[in-house]
């Protein structure tokens, strides 16, 4: 039943780094700003290929962001990448006033998001970026689900006119989408159709959702839809409300805080268009901690197993309501 199988593992940051360097060949307007962590967020690929369009500003994220605005207002497509924690919160005022109010063509790539950063601990495990950026007018937010999609998302973000944020991970995760799959900002991918429950996930949780849906079918005879909601803003309200209606129950899954992320965005749509029972898998309003990525994913419930349980729960609530 699952047409999506894992073809190995690579981190989404690698897809971003490779695609950005390649897109630099096609689009001479692209300029990349480095803030010391280029070898981690892999803008180093672009810097090696296009040194004349790479500008290093050191550990100065506020300056990096506003310099990007100056470049964008001079006709460039300005990319700035650093760890998500420092590429969104350290420079939040710059993002609000200079990037978004100007509607400047600035692209922020937040690497090392979520608990899969691992042993570095809570300071570096950014779990609040989506919530923060979702409140900013003009901002587009994209969370690719694997290496392959990260490449397409990077190109789409580069071609998009206006501010955009692409959320990336450090850890290697399953590559399961295909090179010829469509990618369109604002258009969620229905990876698997279903009628009993709909799982709406983003990032690394999409693969877990697909595993959960398979198990729900074989073990519990439930027909579960899986939506890869790679664009958090603007959210694909049409697809989400159609599946709320079709399945009558939703589980959201994301490597982000419970407040303000994908779950909140989906709930806003569902409440307004077609209210159904929902369960949200997310960080429960607490900070992360050190540990290996796999351990942390299990510890905080970012697993297929937890998705299965929450699907059973929401399905029960749906039946009871009827």
């Amino acid at each position: 039943m699952n047409k999506y199988i894992s073809k190995g593992t690579k981190p989404t940051r690698q897809g971003f780094g490779e695609a950005l360097a390649e897109q630099g060949d096609k689009d001479s307007r692209i300029v990349v700003i480095g803030a010391d962590v280029t070898g981690s967020v892999l803008t180093s690929f672009f810097a090696e290929k296009h040194p004349e369009r790479f500008i290093s500003v050191g550990i100065a994220e506020q300056n990096a962001t506003t310099i990007a605005v100056g470049l964008a207002l001079s006709g460039k497509v300005a990319f700035f990448s650093a760890y998500a924690a420092f590429a969104t919160f350290r420079n939040a005022d710059q993002l609000r006033v200079s990037v978004c109010y100007n509607n400047a063509n600035v692209k922020i790539a937040g690497g090392h998001s979520g608990v899969t950063v691992g042993p570095d601990g809570a300071t570096h495990q950014c779990l609040e970026d989506i919530g923060l950026l979702r409140t900013l007018p003009n901002m587009t937010i994209v969370v690719p689900c694997d290496y392959e999609q990260a490449k397409k998302a990077t190109i789409a973000v580069a071609e998009h006119i206006g501010p955009a944020y692409i959320r990336l991970s450090r850890a290697k995760t399953a590559i399961f989408t295909n090179a010829d799959d469509d990618f369109q900002i604002g258009k969620a991918d229905v990876l698997r159709d279903g009628t009993d429950v709909c799982i709406v996930a983003c990032g690394a949780l999409v693969w877990e959702a697909l595993q959960a849906a398979g198990e729900l079918e074989t073990k519990y005879n439930l027909n579960v839809a899986v939506i890869n909601c790679h664009t958090i803003k603007p959210i694909d309200a049409d697809t989400i409300s159609a599946y709320a209606k079709k399945c009558g129950a939703i589980v959201t899954a994301e490597e982000h805080q419970i407040y303000g992320g994908l779950g909140s965005a989906v709930a806003e749509v569902v409440v307004g268009k077609y209210p159904v029972p929902m369960e949200m898998i997310a960080m429960q309003d607490r900070f992360g901690e050190s540990g290996e990525p796999d351990e942390l994913m299990r510890h905080f419930g970012f697993t297929a197993e937890n998705i299965v349980n929450r699907c059973l729960l929401v399905h029960k609530r749906k039946i009871e309501q009827k």
Partner: peptide, 19 residues
């Protein structure tokens, strides 16, 4: 450009000069 949050305009100017 928009300005009003102090300190940001100078960095924007630097970005323009870099461009």
């Amino acid at each position: 450009t928009t300005t009003g949050s102090l300190g940001q305009g100078v960095s924007i100017a630097v970005g323009m000069a870099m461009s």
